[in-house]
Amino acid sequence: MLAWIGRYAVAAAVFGVLDGLWLGVVARPLYDDQLGELLAENPNAVAAVAFYVIYVLGITFFATRPALAEESGRTALVHGGLLGLVAYATWDLTNLAVLEGFPAGVVLVDLMWGTVATAVTAVVTYAVCRRVPALR
């Protein structure tokens, strides 16, 4: 159980840093420009924390766990990338389908980001856990 909690903590740290940089620095101008009126002035912290808790659980269970079981960084990369694509497609394509004026350009950028960020998180988490015996 402690190994699992450790794996979760590694994934949370990696994804938190990546997504924080993405949302706060890299993609901020794009989101402000394309989603300006849709963005909440004060984001719902409870909903945000719930997303990160659940999403990191998904990365740990669906990507890192099988990668460690197979001793395969490729498994981490593929499972993480597919999880990211599916999760971010769920959000973005649903918005595109039901929200008037939701920008298609944001959808493409988000799909790429979700795929890459989740794959990188899974691979880095896998690599760290392989090097720390207590996390294997």
Results as ranks from 00 to 15, higher is better:
residue 2 L to T: 06
residue 3 A to E: 09
residue 5 I to T: 14
residue 6 G to E: 06
residue 8 Y to N: 08
residue 8 Y to F: 14
residue 8 Y to P: 00
residue 9 A to C: 14
residue 10 V to M: 13
residue 10 V to G: 10
residue 10 V to D: 11
residue 11 A to G: 05
residue 13 A to Y: 04
residue 14 V to L: 11
residue 15 F to D: 08
residue 16 G to D: 12
residue 16 G to R: 08
residue 17 V to T: 08
residue 17 V to F: 09
residue 18 L to Q: 01
residue 19 D to F: 12
residue 19 D to Q: 12
residue 22 W to F: 12
residue 24 G to V: 00
residue 27 A to Y: 09
residue 27 A to W: 06
residue 27 A to N: 08
residue 28 R to A: 15
residue 29 P to K: 10
residue 32 D to A: 14
residue 32 D to E: 15
residue 32 D to Y: 12
residue 33 D to F: 13
residue 33 D to K: 14
residue 33 D to G: 15
residue 34 Q to A: 14
residue 34 Q to H: 07
residue 35 L to E: 08
residue 36 G to R: 00
residue 36 G to N: 05
residue 36 G to V: 05
residue 37 E to Q: 09
residue 38 L to R: 15
residue 38 L to A: 15
residue 39 L to G: 10
residue 39 L to Y: 11
residue 42 N to R: 11
residue 44 N to C: 02
residue 45 A to Y: 13
residue 46 V to A: 15
residue 47 A to T: 10
residue 47 A to K: 10
residue 49 V to Q: 10
residue 50 A to H: 09
residue 52 Y to D: 10
residue 55 Y to F: 15
residue 55 Y to V: 00
residue 55 Y to Q: 05
residue 55 Y to L: 08
residue 59 I to M: 09
residue 60 T to G: 06
residue 61 F to D: 08
residue 62 F to I: 07
residue 63 A to G: 09
residue 64 T to A: 13
residue 65 R to G: 04
residue 66 P to E: 11
residue 67 A to E: 03
residue 67 A to V: 06
residue 68 L to K: 05
residue 68 L to G: 06
residue 68 L to S: 07
residue 69 A to V: 12
residue 69 A to F: 15
residue 71 E to H: 15
residue 72 S to P: 08
residue 72 S to N: 06
residue 72 S to D: 05
residue 74 R to H: 15
residue 74 R to L: 15
residue 75 T to A: 13
residue 76 A to C: 13
residue 77 L to A: 14
residue 77 L to M: 09
residue 77 L to V: 11
residue 80 G to Y: 00
residue 80 G to I: 01
residue 80 G to A: 07
residue 80 G to N: 02
residue 80 G to E: 05
residue 81 G to D: 04
residue 82 L to S: 06
residue 82 L to T: 08
residue 85 L to I: 04
residue 86 V to H: 06
residue 86 V to S: 06
residue 88 Y to D: 02
residue 90 T to M: 14
residue 91 W to R: 02
residue 91 W to L: 04
residue 91 W to D: 01
residue 92 D to K: 04
residue 92 D to T: 04
residue 92 D to H: 01
residue 92 D to Y: 03
residue 93 L to W: 07
residue 95 N to P: 00
residue 97 A to Q: 08
residue 97 A to T: 00
residue 98 V to R: 09
residue 99 L to Q: 15
residue 102 F to N: 02
residue 103 P to S: 02
residue 104 A to V: 08
residue 105 G to Y: 05
residue 106 V to Q: 01
residue 106 V to K: 01
residue 106 V to E: 05
residue 107 V to P: 02
residue 108 L to A: 09
residue 108 L to T: 00
residue 112 M to H: 02
residue 113 W to A: 03
residue 114 G to M: 02
residue 120 V to W: 07
residue 120 V to L: 13
residue 121 T to V: 04
residue 121 T to C: 05
residue 122 A to M: 09
residue 122 A to G: 10
residue 123 V to Q: 07
residue 124 V to I: 14
residue 125 T to N: 02
residue 126 Y to N: 11
residue 127 A to K: 01
residue 128 V to P: 03
residue 129 C to V: 00
residue 129 C to Q: 02
residue 130 R to D: 10
residue 136 R to K: 12
residue 136 R to P: 02
